[in-house]
């Protein structure tokens, strides 16, 4: 269900906690699973539950509580813009508008070619560097002018 490499990563996470507390690794295990599969299908979560010796419902609860888990497929690149007040004061709403115009989609939509999904996020702890965009939960891009957004989209289109 998950690659040997992914399982190895999960094992490394499990080792961080006391032996009787394997469940503590569920957040990290779901991150590993999502990185490999792109999103968390029920069967993926069931597999994680079985691997960690948890009830499946306990895993679903975790996956639905934390905002960065994808419970549905997304485009190849999920772009999340922080629009919270401090970022908003520093131009993140204009950045979001520019992204929407360039991609031709609104928040929570995916481009027809399946390449980009646009999301709105809450504070990412990077406020002074606004506007900030997070790509696939992993790579943060900051101080995003319109030109920098265009360059970022061009780069992601080529990949």
């Amino acid at each position: 269900m998950l690659s040997a490499e992914a399982l190895q990563k999960i094992d490394r996470e499990v080792a961080k906690y006391p032996p009787e507390q394997k469940q503590s690794a569920v957040m990290a295990a779901l991150i590993v699973a999502q990185d490999e599969k792109g999103w968390l299908a029920a069967e993926t979560m069931d597999f994680v539950a079985q691997y960690l010796g948890m009830a499946p419902v306990a895993v679903y609860e975790v996956a639905s509580f934390y905002n960065l888990y994808n419970l549905q497929p997304t485009g190849k690149y999920k772009l999340t813009v922080c629009t919270c007040l401090p970022c908003g004061l520093q131009g993140s709403l204009e950045a979001a508008d520019h992204l929407k115009a360039r991609l031709g989609i609104d928040f929570d939509e995916t481009t027809a070619d399946g390449r980009f999904t646009l999301k709105e996020g809450e504070c990412m702890g990077a406020c002074s560097m606004a506007p900030v965009v997070l790509v696939n939960n992993k790579k943060m891009h900051d101080y995003l002018s319109k030109e920098k957004i265009d360059a970022l989209l061009d780069e992601l289109r080529k990949r």
Binding site: G88, L89, G91, D97
Partner: peptide, 11 residues
């Protein structure tokens, strides 16, 4: 001056 309300708001 600092932009429109986010489009998230109606939803």
């Amino acid at each position: 001056k600092w932009g429109r309300a986010g489009a998230h708001l109606p939803a």
